[in-house]
């Protein structure tokens, strides 16, 4: 690492101190990441498929549905986003099922940084003060911008009240083998998550864009790289490319956070995003969490779904469980 990165590192990367020596230089970092156990793709996918056959019924299903709702980062990340759209999404997150007030609220509303303030305001006004605002940053989704631009993007979002920052890594640098650059950038963004006036820093989620990293070995390396650099969460994808969250790549990242906690004592969260649309999908992910990282991760503090359409399917399944009859799209809200 360059001396510049050492300066930005300190408190943020404290969790990784148990592995401080592996980040001491570019060469050490590369050696460490390439020394991680390999991933056999077929075996990983077979394990995920097997877990996908778990049959979650009745009480377990009810529990899982509510848990899944509470883990959603309800997301809108469109060029056409407007304050109106964001406000309605916030209302939905705070009150997912108007017909059933026992329905849990979502974990966060996820928007572009320029909408963070709108979201924050809408939530506190609409009974959603317990819901976080998550803002994507760092030239999301491509990440192709100067570091200064990425940091400014981050600081703006934090200043606008974002509780969580979803940054993208520089996949180009990663694929070029420039792990040090990726590491430093994460550290720098982590530093930008601090609030100038004090207070709880924004939580940092680091997005890999697994579809672009292409191999499971790369995803495992990216996971460790991000955790060593101080990520609070590691996240599969932006939702903007062809391959987003999959059960196997999420399983792999759950193995990483499990092993990282065993090695350092620090627990990191996981967020699959993109492509999770049905309650059945969500429950499969929860089974994978349960049987891979373990029950400690079965909480919105440690596991999130980045999703938009998932919520309505969860709500319909919830209604089905309550009433015994199948629900329909007219009985959930469009936001």
């Amino acid at each position: 690492m360059s001396s510049a990165s050492t300066a930005t590192a300190s408190p943020a990367s404290a969790p990784a101190s148990a592995l401080a020596d592996v980040t001491a230089s570019d060469a050490a970092l590369r050696r460490y990441l390439h020394g991680l156990p390999g991933v056999d793709a077929v075996g990983l996918e077979a394990r995920a498929a097997t877990l996908g056959t778990r049959s979650i019924k009745t009480t377990a299903k009810a529990y899982a549905i509510d848990l899944a709702i509470s883990m959603i980062d309800l997301t809108t990340l469109e060029g056409a986003d407007t304050p109106g759209k964001v406000r309605s999404l916030c209302a939905k997150g705070a009150n997912p099922d108007p017909s059933d007030r026992t329905t849990p609220q979502v974990a966060a509303i996820c928007v572009y940084s320029d909408m963070a303030a709108t979201a924050k305001k809408a939530l506190s006004a609409g009974g959603g003060s317990g819901i976080n605002v998550a803002s994507v940053a760092t030239a999301f989704p491509s990440g192709r911008a100067a570091l200064s631009v990425k940091l400014a993007d981050t600081r703006e979002a934090v200043a606008a009240g974002a509780d969580e920052i979803d940054m993208v890594i520089d996949r180009g640098a990663f694929l070029a083998g420039d792990y040090g650059k990726v590491f430093e950038e994460i550290q720098a963004v982590k530093d930008a998550c601090r609030r100038p006036g004090g207070g709880e820093p924004a939580h940092l989620k680091v997005i890999f864009e697994n579809g672009e990293l292409s191999t499971y070995d790369n995803i495992r390396r990216a996971s460790w790289l991000a955790m060593l650099a101080g990520a609070d969460f590691i996240k599969t994808s932006t939702g903007k490319v062809a391959v987003n969250a999959t059960l196997p790549n999420t399983l792999l990242m759950l193995e990483a956070v499990r092993d990282f906690r065993a090695a350092t004592g620090t627990q990191i969260g996981v967020k699959p995003a993109g492509g999770i649309r049905t309650a059945k999908d969500a429950i499969r992910y929860l089974v994978v969490v349960n049987e891979t990282a373990g029950p400690d991760w079965l909480s919105p503090d440690w596991f999130r779904f980045g999703a938009s359409s998932l919520l309505n399917d969860l709500l319909m399944q919830r209604q089905k469980l309550k009433t015994g009859r199948y629900s329909g799209p007219d009985y959930v809200t469009v936001d």
Binding site: K57, T59, L67, P104, N290, S299, D301
Partner: peptide, 12 residues
């Protein structure tokens, strides 16, 4: 909710 354990109900 985090205190609760994800027990799979019987699925015969």
């Amino acid at each position: 909710m985090p205190d609760q354990i994800f027990e799979y109900a019987p699925a015969p």
